[in-house]
Design a protein around this nucleic acid. Sequence first.
DNA 1: CTCTTTGGTAAGTTATGACTTACGGTAAGT
DNA 2: ACTTACCGTAAGTCATAACTTACCAAAGAG
Lengths: 103, 103
Amino acid sequence: MAYEDIFTALADQTRRHIFEALRDQPQTVGQLAEHQPVSRPAVSQHLKVLQDANLVSVEPRGTSRLYSIRREGLSELRDYLDSFWSDALSAYSAEIARRMKTN
Amino acid sequence: MAYEDIFTALADQTRRHIFEALRDQPQTVGQLAEHQPVSRPAVSQHLKVLQDANLVSVEPRGTSRLYSIRREGLSELRDYLDSFWSDALSAYSAEIARRMKTN
DNA sequence: CTCTTTGGTAAGTTATGACTTACGGTAAGT
DNA sequence: ACTTACCGTAAGTCATAACTTACCAAAGAG
């Protein structure tokens, strides 16, 4: 019950946009809703799904709530992806080598 | 239009099972349907979605069709994940270091 | 204490997508 | 040529989930 929820959570476009918005900086529900084409309650519901998938965390800030991204949540998805390569470690190395070249 | 489709494709449980079954070896539609709790046409429809997401490929084998996994399709998803780390390269290195220790 | 801001929850509507059965099409066997 | 095996597509059903409005609770500001 980990990467399954991540796929479900990030399959929705609006939810992905919210998640990507949090990549830049922590934001409140109202701030997030401003840049989305849906209502604020909808954003709240999406944030709950993201939270259940361990992709975001909350911290109360007075009357508002500051949502932040949880990168560790993505690690589970990364591990899942690795299981599709026979030699995950060498795949990582090859990837790094490729990136170092293009830098 | 790449990692979006992958999230959508792998968000469904049945589709994930089909995809994971192909991880071991290429299989025909009939073979895949045997191990799934849904009908053969349903499996066909799922395979179409996986194919549109560049996650599987087909090769005709007489009257049957052999489906194989396309690992390159997952690379796009991996790149997307990397974008959530400020310094992707060092993140990779840290990950490798961690894995080497536990080996 | 009252008013305002902020946001989570409930209830109801609607669109989407996962499934079924039925059908058609192609390749191999006899 | 006829039959069998394998599979994709069409059409229709049904459950789910994404959205809305309405309401309620909690935390500052005056």
